[in-house]
Nucleic acid binder design. Sequence first.
DNA 1: AATGAATGAGTCTTCATTCAT
DNA 2: TATGAATGAAGACTCATTCAT
Lengths: 231, 231, 231, 231
Amino acid sequence: MAGEKNKEKLILDSAVALFTSKGYQATRMEDISKRVGISKGLTYFYYKNKEDLFMALTKKAFDQFKEEFREVLRSKGKNGLEMLTDLMGKIINFSKEHPVYYFAVLNFLDVLKKYNEPLLRSEIDPLILESVHFHKLLEIHHEPIKLGIQMVSLGIKDGSIRPELQPEITFYTVWGMIIGFEKMAGPVNFERKETKVSAEAWQLGFTKLMQDMLRGTIQASRPAIVQTSLF
Amino acid sequence: MAGEKNKEKLILDSAVALFTSKGYQATRMEDISKRVGISKGLTYFYYKNKEDLFMALTKKAFDQFKEEFREVLRSKGKNGLEMLTDLMGKIINFSKEHPVYYFAVLNFLDVLKKYNEPLLRSEIDPLILESVHFHKLLEIHHEPIKLGIQMVSLGIKDGSIRPELQPEITFYTVWGMIIGFEKMAGPVNFERKETKVSAEAWQLGFTKLMQDMLRGTIQASRPAIVQTSLF
Amino acid sequence: MAGEKNKEKLILDSAVALFTSKGYQATRMEDISKRVGISKGLTYFYYKNKEDLFMALTKKAFDQFKEEFREVLRSKGKNGLEMLTDLMGKIINFSKEHPVYYFAVLNFLDVLKKYNEPLLRSEIDPLILESVHFHKLLEIHHEPIKLGIQMVSLGIKDGSIRPELQPEITFYTVWGMIIGFEKMAGPVNFERKETKVSAEAWQLGFTKLMQDMLRGTIQASRPAIVQTSLF
Amino acid sequence: MAGEKNKEKLILDSAVALFTSKGYQATRMEDISKRVGISKGLTYFYYKNKEDLFMALTKKAFDQFKEEFREVLRSKGKNGLEMLTDLMGKIINFSKEHPVYYFAVLNFLDVLKKYNEPLLRSEIDPLILESVHFHKLLEIHHEPIKLGIQMVSLGIKDGSIRPELQPEITFYTVWGMIIGFEKMAGPVNFERKETKVSAEAWQLGFTKLMQDMLRGTIQASRPAIVQTSLF
DNA sequence: AATGAATGAGTCTTCATTCAT
DNA sequence: TATGAATGAAGACTCATTCAT
């Protein structure tokens, strides 16, 4: 049929929807199948097992994630620091609009950490290690990061970022800041009275601090643009 | 008896050991009991269920975590920025030496986020919401954060941190950076060739960036101290 | 296959056999499965849980029970009072031959009582309220009773039962008598010396009393038939 | 202390209260102890086990039950049929005011039935057979019945009950009717439209039918008294 | 491609009961 | 009498996965 997307994709979409509303653990393979209107068996025909399915989903998440980076790089008339600022805003949005994708990305970082420490590799579910999609991810997961490093390099070139900074280290730091920012959303919203800080105020302050950290000479004159590009 | 720690504590220690080696999911309540040499029933006597046990563990994790903050604050002759630098190093060590505690702290942040968003609260396992320890955590979880904010305030007073910074926002940002740093350990170690950065180089660079971000006037003259205090 | 009854039914039969010999509580789901030669999981595939299974069994019990009523109504040449007398005998037999079914019917009456009293409804196991079979039972449980009421009406028409009696009330009374009769089997058999009454004598006397209670004008002349129809 | 009833009794009262609100199964020995304010161990000091406790409770239930019979017999100026009518009303009230006692009485009848059928005796929980209170019950359970039989005998003597009736059989029948009446409370209240009968109408009709069944010559002239004595 | 009946290992959890003190 | 920590057997239920068709 014309309107019928291929099953493989439909299954993934169904998984995303259900993981979003019920969480990974609580979602059963059967739920996913039913939502698509196919049988459990067919889902297993396309994906070897639940982990494999999740790795496939993670692959899509990384594609989408990378797309965010690309969009920022494509934007004309922005200097490096502005790009990083935009990126920050975009990723924070991404985590809100595609929480499952964002979760998948973070989860992959955890797996990766274990994968890189010989002692911990055995803790990884063998089904993950068997998944084709996992191995594909090993190949591509750093692509968005490469784009982020590019932004820093651009910033150094255009003077918006201090020239003495090392692009890789700098970008990793920014990326880490973003992850941490997102994680802190819970406590920040929860603090009361004395330590209370509104989520919005924090996002603004956080962004500014990031800029202070990186800023070269050029930037000083255009603070307004930097800030509004956040939204 | 003198040498016999109380069962409650022994159970928790056993849980920490097993969660460390096998992970939370893979550890069965019976394993925990056996390791202590008691019956399954007794474990349920002290902890209502697995979630409750984990919340108790999380409580201990926060206590320990707060202790790290305290130690930093107790150290004499350090200015605010140095304290934050020390704290960063301490937390990163903490995450390596007590991975389960660190995981528990982060996990609590995730729960907290859901807890604060009415739409997501229903996703939290009801057993968690029932746990006494969870409610205790709601009360105490911001204590370490308060200490961190204190450090920033001290730094502003002693001139090691820029006076225009808002202590709460600033500390949240630092704390977020630390979380993110830890998360990135995986990918950073994995990158190859082109983008490769050694973990050590990154920690150094990361720390320095944090300092740049916060630094007031005083600090410029003592970079050496700041760096060595990391280890 | 021809000779292979469907699993659903086999499971129910197995449950009846085991409930008969070991009682409901003492019978484990796994026992039921094993007796059929299938896995535990399959039993849960057909019946959501133990309560659901029991409700399905109760449904069958009511079907069978109703059949007893039907048979009595189908018998030719009997007047209403004779029918009720026959019914009494049939139900007493039913309780002996299908003790589990009889127990299920009585148990359902208990549940129904709670179901009808708002204050007690919460005492009913939620799994029962969730069972499809329970809701089916709510619809059909009065069918046998309707047939019984019919018998009284017939008896009034044919003169074997007093015309001033109200059919519904009268049948409920008879049905109640039967239930009570069955319950009393224990003590009656146990009484000694002074109060001793043989079970047979009691059944006969009981039946006669029921007839006395209902008898219209016609019946007086045919006591013999009424009595022999009991066995 | 003056106001302190002995523990044994307090435990029983606690059990009655909890069985009433939560049911026998759902009530844990610990709940019972806590409600009294004593330890679990002490409860086991007074009652060997849960079954033993329930048998003790059943014993109290029978004492109370017998008291109802005694009160009826003590009432002056009533003939036998009126007494039975009163008894009926009293027992129905008893089942509403002391549902746990009533349940205990009926439960004992079930046990008794198994106890009297050699094939079924093995189904009885051994703990019941071991209970001292169970054996006491075997001795006293027919006492209320004896009183009931007495009422029938009185009725025959005073002419309110047909002289040809056999007192034992007759009373068992009446007792059975009462049990059945109570059991039917559920369905009767539930029937709709066509077969609907109000609970009150039924109780009245039921009582009248019982009277019709037993009535001798005297009674005809005093129907009003008989009916009002019901409440 | 597609179905869905069938499997069974895996685990949490309950609670009556005991016993050292 | 009195405590309450400790036991451990018992059992319901889940769900990822397989496979005959």
